[in-house]
Design a protein around this nucleic acid. Structure first.
Lengths: 130, 130
DNA sequence: CGGGATCCAAGCAGATACTG
DNA sequence: CAGTATCTGCTTGGATCCCG
């Protein structure tokens, strides 16, 4: 235990593997988290509805990711003990604050899609005999 | 080819798998990209130096990720044909703009580490008999 | 020194079947 | 409907060897 504290992985010093920030990046880094947060953007959504929205996700990954988000306190889970069970998921306060940096990232992505595509294109074209 | 254009994966509509934004998220999502961008934060850095900074990364992953970033036009590669070959990596203009949203994300991570840890802790403690 | 190629292990993720 | 459990395939990534 080195009790490493919230250091910057980017700013210039410790890119250490044990930096706690890494864990967060790992989470949002997985294939589905961001999409699920997106699906919960506008309020309370049922399990099957999330599944429909994220489209392509398996039931296993959906459950797994949702539980991870719940564990991290980013998503709240509500079970309605009705005849056919109904479960609703909602972003918690913390989860909602995550939307901002995520949106920033998405804005960057949208703004740079052209650049990136063009660059890839040129790169793949080979040693561009200038 | 559906020529899907820069749609929002978050804002409320298409969480489609073919959304080009996904590709960007996939890239920054991998375990090393963010760390490498961090390592290149302050200018031109040699291969071995990057490797030392990112610490824990294998030579394979480093090369692979760097090439990916180069292909995306986020990192520039310069080869100095000296006796022992010397290669330097630098963030391109596009690469530098990526630092902002990344920093925002990191800020969020740092700000929420406490929340998240506490939540995980509570979650793991079991069905909290309130 | 930088990095390509290969081999192999571990983890991630999908399909399926079964429960409350 | 909303999950859990299992089995399996595929991808990811590390270790190693070799080349410029």
């Amino acid at each position: 235990m080195v009790t490493t504290q919230a250091e910057s992985v980017l700013g210039g010093s410790p890119y250490r593997a044990d930096c706690p920030t890494r864990h967060i990046l790992d989470r949002i880094g997985d294939r589905w988290t961001v999409l699920i947060v997106g699906a919960l953007w506008d309020g309370s959504v049922r399990f099957s509805e999330v599944r429909r929205r994220v489209e392509g996700i398996s039931q296993k990954m959906l459950t797994q990711t949702l539980r991870g988000l719940e564990r991290d306190g980013l998503v709240h889970r509500t079970v309605h003990p009705e005849v056919p069970v109904r479960v609703e998921y909602t972003l918690t306060e913390a989860g909602r604050t995550l939307r901002e940096p995520l949106r920033a990232l998405e804005q960057w992505a949208i703004a740079n899609l052209g650049n990136v595509s063009a660059s890839q294109d040129a790169y793949d074209r080979g040693p561009t005999s200038s």
